[in-house]
Design a binder for these strands. Sequence first.
DNA 1: ATTAATCTTTAGATTTGTCTAAATTTTATT
DNA 2: AATAAAATTTAGACAAATCTAAAGATTAAT
Lengths: 230, 230
Amino acid sequence: MSFTESEENYIKSIYHLQQQGEVVSTNDLASELQTKPASVTDMLKKLKAKKLLNYERYKGFSLSDEGTRVALGIVRKHRLWEYFLVHELEFGWDEVHEIAEELEHISSPQLVEKLDNYLSHPKFDPHGDPIPDINGRMELRKQVNLIDLQLNCEAEVSAVGSQSTELLELLKHKNIGIGTVLAVLKKFTFDNSLEIKVRDFPPFSISQQLAQTLFLKPLYGATTVGSISK
Amino acid sequence: MSFTESEENYIKSIYHLQQQGEVVSTNDLASELQTKPASVTDMLKKLKAKKLLNYERYKGFSLSDEGTRVALGIVRKHRLWEYFLVHELEFGWDEVHEIAEELEHISSPQLVEKLDNYLSHPKFDPHGDPIPDINGRMELRKQVNLIDLQLNCEAEVSAVGSQSTELLELLKHKNIGIGTVLAVLKKFTFDNSLEIKVRDFPPFSISQQLAQTLFLKPLYGATTVGSISK
DNA sequence: ATTAATCTTTAGATTTGTCTAAATTTTATT
DNA sequence: AATAAAATTTAGACAAATCTAAAGATTAAT
């Protein structure tokens, strides 16, 4: 079975929102896709009819197994093309997302496999996201300690190393929590403090002790700190 | 200005039909695009409104300079991708057309230039068709004797060197005629015979004497091609 | 537990590209 | 030149994907 570009975009967005943890809502999906909730509802019905989605009106929705399989196929194509654009064509890693959004809809399965082979089966794309194999399997993204995070690489806080009230108080004061997206701008060797930038806030600095408690994972579609997309 | 995939397909088809010499008609275009004449008329009006086409109802049409420029851009992308698919991804030259039909609609101009650079500015695609440069200029294609045809380069029989019944009998037996598309798979130096492959038939071999009577031109836009700059 | 606020869906319209069937224009034939 | 044939265009309809506006369902708040 084949799908329209629009259907594929919905499937991919649902997949990504599901990965981010929360239950996906019609409104979430509408804003992710830059469209209106009414349009989303229409498409949900189509995807349900094609058995890609578990959906009941007013009750929410999630990808079916088949929908997930399709989503992983699109993600595979997107990330392989990003890898090609950066490592072969010498694009910057911040320039390739939009182009890959087009390339991911090219349908030939043979093309994907030949490309994968040509690139020697890369496991991660230029943003650090894992590339699913032909069966949809991919390596888990490992959490990285903030201390070890690459400069200017956006990542999302996924765990904290302690639950102490003192730590939580400090995190709250600095507007950092699970899901916060940030990047390291500078590392100071004098005291191992870091200058970081949290989305929608001006840069500020944090201590080595604090940094050590924060674990992060790279973001899908991460960009330079200057131009926050997604 | 940008164009829909459908608009681009119309522009490209008009370009190709114009290259084949005759004046292009609504019916020709409809059958080329596997659609109906009424649909063609609708699109012609759209393309005229976008100044890509000189068109007056019932009087015929032709690409404007701007339309030609756009067509050459699409042809450039198509042929560069075909080159990539065959020479980098190791597709057979007979497998790449449909895939390139999709890839030619990817919009990024930067991608085209990086790809061209990556491939070291090839002048001809795997079928022997010339690849327009960024200004729409490309090398003229001349008729080539079958003896001189490059290996694995598809070409269309455009002339035979004799009208003898003996020759025509042989050509008929081998299913070769004007317009036949074939490629040379192998050349044998022992007797200068050639192993060739005619579309839709298994490969077979022909003698030096026969090969010498056959003149071919690479597929698609036949003879002329100027440059439309600016 | 009502009411208010929010979220989701329906109803009906719009745009793009297509179609069929009928009308119009051009061209070819007698 | 008149008429038949062919090519082209118009008129009206449809499917896909979207929109706005309004109605329906759920959730939150008093």
